[in-house]
């Protein structure tokens, strides 16, 4: 019945949405920020620990849909080991991919399963919310409100 939805809900998204690998508050962290989507009530709080100018660990607490939880989890995988500048560039490409469905940025390889959201305009912000929170954490802000515009 939902065959055509497999683009959006790929196996890895259902998996990570259900059982995220990084879904916890870190015991020690040096930055945290919250992403709120006031339209639907979704919220992601990101915790990160840096060392040597690189993100060493990222954990998150989320209340939200499968897309937003999976996106936060895949984001954690993708950004660990990277510098804030690299992460900001990834965030920019990611938001672009979520809107257009395509990206030639090799850094986004593991995030490609989320490209399917571009077909669902109301769901794009579910995928980008964790990235807004992460950017806010890197900027030292306490909150990042995700918007898809």
């Amino acid at each position: 019945m939902f065959e055509d939805l497999r683009d959006l809900y790929q196996e890895v998204i259902l998996d990570r949405g259900r059982k995220p690998h990084h879904g916890r508050r870190l015991e020690t962290f040096d930055a945290q920020a919250k992403g709120d989507n006031p339209m639907c009530g979704d919220r992601v709080t990101v915790f990160l620990r840096r060392d040597d100018g690189r993100v060493q660990e990222l954990g998150f607490e989320a209340r939200g849909c499968a897309i937003s939880v999976a996106s936060a989890d895949l984001m954690a995988d993708a950004v660990i080991g990277h510098t804030p500048d690299e992460i900001r560039a990834m965030a920019e490409s990611f938001v672009d991919m979520a809107r257009t469905g395509v990206s030639d940025d090799a850094a986004l390889e593991t995030l490609r399963p989320l490209a399917g959201v571009h077909d669902y305009p109301s769901r794009v912000k579910c995928a980008t919310l964790p990235w807004a929170a992460l950017q806010a954490a890197l900027d030292g802000a306490a909150e990042g409100v995700a918007t898809s515009e």
């Binding site: 939902f2 055509d4 939805l5 959006l8 809900y9 979704d42 849909c65 669902y120």
Partner: peptide, 12 residues
């Protein structure tokens, strides 16, 4: 299932 995911599937 989160309510948004439910709504997206129903919408399909």
């Amino acid at each position: 299932a989160h309510a948004h995911d439910v709504a997206t599937l129903l919408d399909r």
